[in-house]
């Protein structure tokens, strides 16, 4: 092997090593920019951008589109930062290990609260917890609609529905 060829191989190896690192970073970036639950939303916004010159079609009334809010975000408490996509199924919250969100909190009950979809909005129902489920500062007693952005307090955790 000539000296020149070896130098080229040497630099190519370093270049490819960094290409791998950059490749992984790009994968990560896509993962962050297009979080799990937002893919439908972003597709919709892309479509509408292209279609702006045309007259907008009357929006189809489907169950999915009517539901406000797409994810449940824990904004305070031990699980802060956790995001649970809301995709039509109900979400259960409590200390029981089979809950969707398992909160380890002495102030929460095993099966504390469930959140489910009903007629286009998200409804919170307390499952007979000891310390109650609170929307903002009001303790709920019956299934109550949870508006987007309203703080839902369970034990020492606070969560809210975000779009």
């Amino acid at each position: 092997m000539s000296e020149l060829a070896l130098t080229i191989v040497r630099l190519a190896f370093l270049g490819l090593l960094w290409a791998f690192v950059l490749g992984t970073v790009i994968v990560l970036r896509r993962d962050i920019r297009q979080p799990a639950d937002a893919s439908t939303a972003s597709r919709a916004s892309k479509g509408s951008k292209k279609r702006t010159p045309k007259a907008p079609k009357p929006p189809r009334v489907s169950r999915k589109q009517k539901v406000r809010g797409t994810k449940l975000v824990v904004i305070d408490g031990p699980l802060v930062g956790t995001v649970v996509p809301l995709e039509g199924q109900q979400v259960t919250i409590g200390r029981a290990p089979d809950s969707t969100i398992v909160i380890d909190d002495d102030y929460a009950s095993s099966r504390h609260t469930r959140i489910y979809e009903s007629e286009g909005s998200w409804v919170v129902e307390d499952l007979g917890s000891t310390n109650g489920t609170w929307i903002d500062r009001v303790r709920i007693t019956t299934p109550t609609v949870l508006p987007v952005g309203a703080p839902l307090r369970i034990g020492r955790s606070t969560m809210q529905i975000q779009k």
Partner: peptide
């Protein structure tokens, strides 16, 4: 990414052999 890593491995081994 796995295939990329594998190709890097082959290139590196070849370089050791040639050098």
């Amino acid at each position: 990414l796995l295939i990329f890593a594998w190709l890097l491995g082959v290139l590196g081994t070849l370089q050791v052999g040639w050098a």
